[in-house]
Amino acid sequence: MFKKIPLATLITSLVIGLSACSKPEEKKEAPVDTAAAAPATLRIGSDLTYPPYAFFKDDKPQGFDVELLGLLANTNQQKTEFVDTRFASLIPSLNSKKFDVIASSMFITPEREKQVNFIAYAKVGNALIVRTGESFAPKDPKDLCGKTLSILKGSAGIPKLDEVSKNYCAANNKKGITIREFDTSPEALQSLLSKSSDVQFDDTDVAKSFIEKVKGRVMISTTEPIYPQTLGLAVRKDDPATLASLTKALETIKGNQEYQKLLDKYGIKGI
């Protein structure tokens, strides 16, 4: 049955209908697909001069970080490709997409977290390395006033040592710490051996590898780790898929004990 509609009601309905049609659609941002298929090859930036974490042996990458990324990539059914890059250039190179992840015994710091995302995987400390048989044997950074120290360029220890030099040495009328930065840790070690530096600052596990390499010509003078830090794998902030896949893979190898076996092999403390 046909029902007669008043003219006023018809006009009101028409206006409302047109308004609804003319209302612009709200733009919805596409969700980030963190479950996207991983690329066939995982490109890894690493300073391959840094035993026991990453170094060349028989022209092949070796070390803790190398084996760790091998386990993670295998979990994600990927191959690995290592890109040898000096430490200070790792984050700029990652953010310019020269590789997908940094695995190079990198400390997680607030400054670095502003530039990249991290996946924490181990805890380490630093040591002071001196020439064996000499009287200078610093136990603490405060013992370094007036001395020349060699260190890896880009090390997280540099601003901390600068702070000691300015806030402790100068405040106590002592000479500051002269910090000499080198592109690689072996170059910093060579500076110590050649007596161009009085002491070297480096990761404790790296220091132990150096002692073995130079047959005891250097020694660790500190008795406790200096500035303990957490190591992290670094991923670009605009790459949530890689972050998610590596995080999941790390949890997988922790669950099946593969990671613990690797930690035990190198004597490194996991988290």
Results as ranks from 00 to 15, higher is better:
M1T: 11
M1I: 04
K3W: 15
K4M: 15
S19L: 11
C21V: 04
P24N: 07
K27T: 00
A35K: 14
S46I: 07
L48G: 08
P52V: 14
Y53F: 15
K57P: 00
D58V: 02
Q62W: 07
F64M: 09
A73K: 02
N74D: 13
T75E: 12
T75M: 04
N76V: 08
T80W: 05
T85A: 09
F87N: 02
P92W: 06
S93H: 05
F99C: 11
A103M: 10
F107Q: 08
I108V: 15
E111D: 15
E113I: 13
E113H: 00
Q115S: 08
A120V: 03
Y121V: 00
G125S: 06
L128E: 12
T132G: 03
G133M: 09
S135H: 12
A137T: 14
L149S: 11
L152D: 14
K153S: 11
K160H: 08
E163F: 10
V164I: 15
N172P: 01
N173L: 14
K174L: 15
R180E: 14
E181W: 05
E187W: 01
S191L: 13
L192M: 03
S194R: 00
V199A: 03
F210Y: 12
I211Q: 13
K213V: 07
R217C: 00
R217K: 14
T222K: 09
Y227I: 13
T230R: 08
L233A: 03
V235Y: 00
T242I: 08
L243G: 00
I253E: 04
I253P: 01
K261F: 07
L262F: 09
L263A: 05
